[in-house]
C-alpha cells in the first residue's frame, strides 16, 4: 500500500523534469559538450579512415582504386581480390601458420607462467630468491637486441626454419609480466582453501589443476589476451625464422613479401591486409573491456 501511494508524486516529478529538460539553460550548458562531440567525431573518423580506405580498396577492381579517388563505396563489390590474396598470394597458408603459432604460443605461455607463478608464490625452496632476482633484473632487458644469439641457438638445436622453433622462441623469451601477474594472484588465495583440498586428498597436481588454476581465470584471461595480441602481431622473430622457408611465413611477414613482389596490386594488398587484421579487430570488438583493462593495468601497478 505504501508503495502505491508513494509512487504517483514521484512519477509526476520525473515527468516534469523530462518536460523541462530542453530549457534554454540546459541546452546552453550542454552545448559545449555537443560541439566537442562533433569535433571528436571528425577526429575519430579520420582516425579509422585508413582502415575504411583499406576495406574499400579491397572491394574495388584495380582501376577503380585509382579512378575513384577518395570515395569509399565501391561501384560493385569485387570479391576476386580476396580469392587472389587467399590462394595465389598464399595468405590462406599464412593465416593457418599464424593461427598455429599464436594458439600454441598462448597455451605454452599460460601453462608455464601459471606453474612458475604458483610455486613462486606459495612454496619456499632453496633458489627461490635467486629465481625472483633473475626474473626482475631481466625485465628491463630489451628482447629485440638478443635476436642474434636466439637465432644461433635455434640453429644449433635444429629448430631454425620450422614452425615449432618459431613457437618455442616466441614462448621462451620475456613474459616475465605474466609470471608476476600469476604470482600476485596466487599469493592472495587463502591458505584454508589449499588445506581443505589437501584434507580432501588432493595431491600436488590436482591441487594446482583442479583448485588453483580454475581460481585464476581472470589472470588467465588477461595473459591469454595480451599474449595473443603480441604473438599475432609479432614480426621480427617470424621474419628471421622464415628467411629461407617462404612456406613458414606468418601474415605480417607474408605482407611484406607480397608488396615486395607485387607493388602495383593495390586491391590485392588491401584484401590481404583485411584478411590479416580481421581476426584481431573482431576479437577486440568482442573483448574490448579486457583489452582496455589489460593496458590500464600497467599504470595502476
Amino acid at each position: 500500500m505504501n508503495t502505491t501511494t508513494a509512487a504517483p508524486p514521484q512519477v509526476r516529478r520525473v515527468r516534469r523534469r523530462n518536460r523541462n529538460r530542453w530549457t534554454v539553460g540546459w541546452v546552453l550548458s550542454r552545448l559545449p559538450y555537443w560541439i566537442v562531440a562533433v569535433f571528436l567525431s571528425g577526429a575519430a573518423f579520420l582516425w579509422i579512415y585508413p582502415f575504411l580506405w583499406m576495406v574499400s580498396a579491397s572491394l574495388k577492381d584495380q582501376l577503380e582504386v585509382f579512378a575513384s579517388g577518395l570515395g569509399l563505396l565501391p561501384d560493385k563489390p569485387i570479391w576476386e581480390n580476396y580469392q587472389r590474396a587467399w590462394g595465389e598470394a598464399g595468405f590462406g597458408k599464412y593465416l593457418v601458420n599464424t593461427v598455429i603459432v599464436t594458439v600454441s604460443t598462448v597455451v605454452i605461455v599460460v601453462v608455464r607462467c601459471a606453474m612458475a607463478g604458483y610455486v613462486l608464490a606459495r612454496y619456499r625452496f632453496a633458489g627461490r630468491r635467486v629465481a625472483l632476482t633473475i626474473l626482475v633484473v631481466t625485465l628491463f632487458v630489451p628482447t629485440g637486441y638478443t635476436i642474434i644469439p636466439v637465432i644461433d641457438i635455434s640453429q644449433r638445436l635444429g629448430l631454425l626454419n620450422s614452425l615449432a622453433g618459431m613457437i618455442i622462441a616466441l614462448s621462451g623469451g620475456a613474459h616475465v609480466a605474466a609470471i608476476l601477474l600469476y604470482m600476485g594472484y596466487f599469493r592472495q588465495v587463502p591458505r584454508e582453501l589449499e588445506e581443505a583440498a589437501v584434507i580432501d586428498g588432493a595431491g600436488f597436481l590436482s591441487l594446482f589443476f583442479r583448485v588453483m588454476l580454475p581460481l585464476a581465470i581472470p589472470v588467465t584471461a588477461t595473459v591469454t589476451l595480451m599474449t595473443f595480441l603480441a604473438t599475432w602481431n609479432a614480426f621480427f622473430l617470424p621474419l628471421v625464422f622464415s628467411f629461407s622457408r617462404p612456406d613458414l611465413r606468418t601474415l605480417s611477414v607474408g605482407m611484406l613479401a607480397f608488396v615486395g613482389e607485387n607493388s602495383v596490386d593495390w586491391s590485392g594488398m588491401a584484401a590481404a591486409a583485411v584478411i590479416s587484421l580481421l581476426p584481431v579487430v573482431l576479437l577486440f570488438a568482442l573483448l574490448q573491456r579486457y583489452f582496455v583493462e589489460g593496458v590500464a593495468g600497467a599504470v595502476k601497478s
Binding site: 559538450y33 555537443w34 566537442v36 562531440a37 571528436l40 567525431s41 575519430a44 573518423f45 582516425w47 579509422i48 585508413p50 582502415f51 583499406m54 595480441l229 599475432w232 602481431n233 614480426f235 601474415l251 605480417s252 611477414v253 605482407m255 611484406l256 608488396v259 594488398m269 588491401a270 591486409a273 590479416s276 587484421l277 584481431v280 579487430v281 576479437l283 577486440f284 574490448q288 583489452f291 582496455v292 593496458v295
Partner: peptide
C-alpha cells in the same frame, strides 16, 4: 560527453592491429 565510449574505441583501434601490416598499408 555524448558517445565517449565510441570515441575511445575508435582511438584505441589502431593499437590492436598488426604493426607490420599497418606499415605496409
Amino acid at each position: 560527453l555524448p558517445l565517449r565510449n565510441l570515441f575511445r574505441t575508435a582511438f584505441f583501434l589502431p593499437v590492436v592491429t598488426t604493426t607490420a601490416i599497418v606499415g605496409v598499408v
